[in-house]
Amino acid sequence: MAERERRHARPRGTVFVPRTQLLTSEDVDRAVRRMAHEVIERNVHIEDLVVIGLQTGGVPFAQRVAAELIDIARRPVEEGLLDVAFYRDDVSLHPVLESAETIIDVDLTDRTVLLVDDVLYTGRTIRAALNALSDWGRPRSIQLAVMVDRGHRELPIRPDYVGKNLPTAKGEAIDASLSGVWIGTLVAK
């Protein structure tokens, strides 16, 4: 669960209590580098790529992936930030989420978009992101990279690049950052 959601999950202000560390920061590093190589392998025209991080959990991963791509391809890669709060289908279902900045300075028409998020769960955030991206043009294709795929999809959405597949129970929570991946539970303060 992204940090943003966690802070506002019902009841307001629940905290993530880690149980086990599943990946260390070195594991995360290696996974991100592998994903970057896979992106290069799949995309011959790396200059068409726009790497967009989903606020807020996906942003550090997007920056790290973009840095790796630049490092490998030795070419500039365009980056952006997207917050999907205004595109969610459950606006009345939960308290207002803290919204974050959206910065996309590129016309996405005919570009290849690489969406990056920390945890893929129900797929609803990605659904909202796909809707949002269409407001910036008509990308040739959109690919999805996630650090952790924890299952429990509610929509027909699948990632193109996965850092780690982690089967989880619904009651569990995942915390993924550049410093590592933990499994735990959400507890009221």
Binding site: M1, E5, A9, F86, D90, L93, P95, V119, Y121
Partner: peptide, 15 residues
Amino acid sequence: YLALSGARVEGEINE
């Protein structure tokens, strides 16, 4: 946005 998006219906937050 704020006035209309409060938690009027209880529900789970899904990622």
